[in-house]
Design a protein around this nucleic acid. Structure first.
Length: 418
DNA sequence: ACAAACGTGTTACTAGCACG
DNA sequence: CGTGCTAGTAACACGTTTGT
């Protein structure tokens, strides 16, 4: 009889249904121990199982529980069969139709696969020193990319990573929109869109290389990309300005903004336009920042000499760039917003980031601005994120009253202060 | 003595909700 | 309709316990 024939015969023998459960358990034991030892326990064995196992182990098995010594099963008793020249492990593998390896071997195998992956990736960027830096950052932080690695086949992931790393190496020297940038690098304008995995991976790696946290929201995303000369939402991310000038290059004032200021006309600038300025400044000796466009409008009409920025809700990148730039010119910054959790959170950010002074945002003005609108528990929770000392007392009062207050009601007081 | 299993505490994602 | 928040859940790492 040839070796193959006896192997097949052996597989057939162990494939009988009575062995199935026992062999599965033996397989599990081997995975954890790395050898055939220990005990397995079959609860409630069927007659079929008892019969098959009794015959093989040459002892009578009965009762609700069958305990089998794995070493006895796989080594001692196996030696006594006519299959003794065969390897029990390969038989087990053939019967269960799966690999018989330990957890440790499994890990090592996986590590090897990952290391092969890195090798192929490095090979693609052969001798490029800049790439080596990026590759290193990727390797060292591989953990945070593992979910993507698992999601794709190695080949697919390799292709994605090639493009992502290429993109980082080719990031623009002067501002460029994401769609144009993606087309330049990959031929596909949507390749790095942030709902795509490639976009997420790109952002992740970019944030690591920039030594930053991964962007938590749309604004942080815009900001990270903007700092790398990539623009998203370049037309929808805008900011409302009044009496504010800009520098085209150092010291050279922009005539366009100057014209609108002289005309006392508010204007809206999108990120797309903002990107071309070197800096911004206020024509007035102070800057007032407001959340609400209606209040902005009232202030501009009644105090025409003021310089003003309207954030129109949450602080967006366009407003941050302009306010940040004006803050550097060392003039006082005043902020006024609504008295609700969102409004105080915005105020907190403006105070923390740009050293602004709250304008009419104390407890007294809160009481004047008070409405009947209830604030629920969940929204009140947000108040605990307010860090500024200047806002603590009004936060306290709000938790007490659980009512919102609106800027519109205190426009007169705001105007008086300016 | 060693590795695996278990339990616990922390972190990363996801879904659902309220707001503008 | 998109956004940011919280809370719930899954994944993960660490230290301890258990079994051979």
């Amino acid at each position: 009889m040839t070796k193959d024939k006896i192997f097949d015969e052996c597989v057939e023998y162990f494939s009988q249904p009575g062995f199935k459960r026992a062999l599965e358990l033996i397989h599990r034991k081997y995975r954890s121990l790395g050898r055939f030892s220990g005990k397995i326990i079959l609860e409630n064995p069927s007659e079929e199982e008892k019969e098959a196992l009794s015959r093989y182990l040459r002892r009578v098995l009965r009762g609700e529980k069958v305990v089998i010594d794995v070493k006895d099963f796989a080594v001692t008793k196996f030696q006594d069969t006519k299959f003794s020249r065969l390897d029990f492990k390969s038989i087990l593998s053939a019967v269960l139709k799966k690999e018989v390896i330990t957890k440790k071997e499994e890990k090592e195998l996986e590590n090897e696969r990952v290391s092969d992956f890195f090798k192929s990736l490095s090979a693609h960027f052969d001798k490029d020193e800049n790439a080596a830096v990026v590759l290193n950052a990727f390797k060292e932080n591989f953990k945070s990319f593992e979910s993507f690695y698992k999601k794709y086949s190695q080949k697919e992931f390799l292709e994605i990573m090639k493009k992502v790393i290429e993109a980082i190496l080719k990031k623009p020297q002067s501002p460029e929109t994401l769609a144009i940038f993606a087309t330049r690098v990959t031929g596909n304008p949507h390749f790095f869109d942030d709902e795509q995995d490639a976009g997420k991976i790109f952002l992740k790696l970019l944030s690591i290389i920039n030594g930053r946290e991964f962007p938590q929201n749309a604004e942080e995303k815009s900001e990270l990309l903007f700092d790398n000369n990539i623009l998203i939402d370049e037309l929808s991310n805008w900011c409302l300005l009044y009496n504010i000038g800009g520098y085209i290059e150092d010291g050279k004032e922009d005539e366009g903004l100057k014209y609108f200021s002289n005309q006392k006309k508010p204007i809206i600038l999108p990120l797309y336009t903002i990107k071309d300025y070197k800096g911004f400044f206020a024509y007035s000796n102070k800057l007032v920042v407001v959340e609400n466009p209606a209040v902005f409008s009232a202030i501009v009409q009644r105090v025409p000499a003021i310089s003003a920025v309207c954030t129109n809700g949450h602080l967006r990148l366009s407003a941050k760039i302009i306010i940040g730039s004006i803050a550097k010119t060392d003039i006082p910054l005043l902020y006024s917003g609504d008295f609700d959790p969102e409004g105080l959170l915005i105020a907190d950010k403006v105070i923390q980031n740009f050293g602004a002074r709250p304008l009419c945002m104390d407890e007294n003005h809160y009481l004047l601005a008070l409405s009947q609108n209830k604030i629920d528990e969940r929204r009140l929770e947000m108040l605990k994120n307010v860090k500024s000392a200047q806002l603590q007392s009004v936060c306290q009062k709000m938790k007490e009253l659980q009512l919102a207050g609106y800027q519109e009601r205190i426009v007169d007081r705001i105007v008086e202060e300016l």
